[in-house]
Design a protein around this nucleic acid. Structure first.
Lengths: 332, 332
DNA sequence: TTGTACGCGTTATCAC
DNA sequence: GTGATAACGCGTACAA
């Protein structure tokens, strides 16, 4: 049931006008009443209805950004796919990039929960998404993409089969005779990273290769971050002959790093990336990648969201297969 | 002045209920009245207020997409910059990708004009944006980015100095002794393409090199498109020794094409791109590019939009400088 | 502090 | 069958 300012006012034993003033700080209200009102607001996790506010104030505090095309790459492709599907189904899309910042993400979800949108597709910044439970209880339709918390099962999600992908990549490197395989990742404690590393471990184990946790190197999920991570890792472990990098930007940085160390790829160091980007076929050498299907993920996520909007109990989760695109960076 | 359903009803001599039924097709209304109502709607370019509708119907037909990061590349970087600035100023951002489709763009602007947003940053699909005049007359705040119509001066814009960029790129190639320089572009009749080509022509002229219009090759603005365009162009004009490609995706495709023709870059064909992408430093060879500053363009566009929102007469236009990033694809 | 008109469409109800 | 009247959705801000 949706809770309005009227409900808050009744519960706190004041008028809606008073509640409004407290929320907006537009007038001094007595200490105790103000406190009681805030408590009631917290209790019900109340957020003023954005539309009513906009209608009254005659402004939306929303700007539109319209562009005529988006070049490809995983997240971009994904954003694009969601946009296309949204359009096909007569929906608009409000877009927010939280820049891997949890606070920003929490604020965003809170804001959006003000009936600003019918539902949310969320690619979380971390795996700890327990804060979402409140909104789920309030029947705010949410679909998780890419990352999720395995312990939370009442939120639908669409993700890639990261375990299998990590496994496949590792097997590919093992088949080329590599025994010392480094892994470079950007974001810790998220299901994507964890699952890919699990797949990596499993593949190693099946081939009787011991797992060395020092072969796991974290860095910022940027070109620069990948560059630094590679240099650190290879300087410390000269026995490493292959690298598995978990995202596009770091893959580019890793290749830069390999070049700067005057190493030959794939002769000295084999490289396999995750995500796949347009330029991967023209790099020196062309990079073998695990391909993530942004289009399928995006469209599926939107379709699931619509189902969830129409039926609050709908809770299907999907895990999509990835594929290995073989180029030259592993010595094939 | 904002026009409401009440105004339409009065003008057409009917009640608001009738107007609503006509718009939504929820009831049979007599031929003549329906016709009269539609005419009035067209006359005033009336669009029902999205917020009032949403408030009444308790749904927004809007979904949110929240992602935790966007990898870089020009448009992506630009989108990201606008998003950051919007957040800093307490705005939300509705995002639409029109996929270079003019009809889609027109529909979008029309929809957004329903007070759905306070203002619009538009990267048009074509230079013919005369259809915007109606909205400008209605004081819908719009800022143009990247592309514009030189004839329309009452819409603020922020663009790169495309003429100078085209000039700089060409001069760079001329200085390396190239006389037969091909140009590959994706979108015809837009200011970006036109201006860059103007710069190219001017540079040629200053160096006494004749302009050959057959050196201009158009293709789809994709990797595939760049690939095909290069093959077509180089097969037809074997004397060409340098290529200037006007966007990232086609630049990647062009390099692919050069490889597939078994030509050496830069020895056989020099290459200079436009936009610059992360992987450009690790391609074979690393690609010299004209760099467009997405961050500055995005933030500036948003700031101008805010000014326009606060003052309908504000109409500053900005042209930002580009820079040449020298790598190896020109033989430096 | 609070009652209440208002912003703008939608739709159930009622009148012709 | 056609069309108008009016209540409603939810905050805001002025008058009391």
């Amino acid at each position: 049931m949706k809770i309005t300012m009227k409900d808050i006012a009744k519960e706190a034993g004041v008028s809606v006008a008073t509640v409004s003033h407290v929320i907006n700080g537009t007038k001094r209200i007595s200490e105790e009443k103000e406190k009681r009102i805030w408590e009631t607001i917290k209790k019900y996790n109340y957020v003023p209805d954005a539309r009513a506010k906009q209608l009254r104030l005659q402004k939306t505090k929303t700007a539109a950004l319209v562009v005529s095309s988006l070049p490809d790459s995983y997240v971009t492709g994904f954003v694009n796919a969601v946009g296309m599907r949204a359009r096909e189904l007569g929906y608009h899309l409000l877009f927010v990039n939280t820049n891997e910042n949890l606070e920003h993400e929490k604020e965003t979800i809170h804001l959006l929960s003000s009936h600003m949108v019918d539902g949310i597709i969320l690619s979380p910044s971390q795996s700890d998404i327990s804060y979402l439970q409140t909104y789920i209880d309030q029947h705010l339709p949410i679909v998780l993409v890419n990352r999720y918390d395995p312990k939370i099962t009442n939120i639908p999600r669409v993700v890639a089969d990261d375990f299998q992908a990590g496994y496949d990549a590792t097997i590919h490197l093992l088949q080329h005779g590599h025994k010392h395989i480094g892994v470079i990742y950007g974001v810790p404690n998220v299901s994507t990273t964890n699952q890919r590393i699990e797949g990596y471990k499993t593949a190693l184990q099946e081939h009787g290769v011991p797992f060395n946790e020092h072969y796991l190197e974290m860095g910022y999920a940027t070109v620069e971050g990948g560059y630094n991570a590679v240099k650190t890792l290879l300087n410390r472990h000269q026995e490493i002959t292959a690298l598995f990098v978990l995202n596009d930007a770091m893959t580019i940085g890793a290749l830069k790093g390999i070049h700067s160390l005057l190493l030959k790829c794939p002769d000295d160091i084999a490289l396999i990336g995750f995500g796949d980007f347009e330029a991967a076929s023209v790099t020196d050498p062309p990079i073998t990648n695990i391909y993530l299907p942004p289009d399928t993920i995006g469209r599926t996520a939107f379709d699931i969201l619509i189902n969830r909007i129409n039926n609050p109990n709908y809770c299907k989760s999907v895990s999509l297969p990835t594929s290995l695109i073989i180029r030259k960076s592993c010595g094939c």
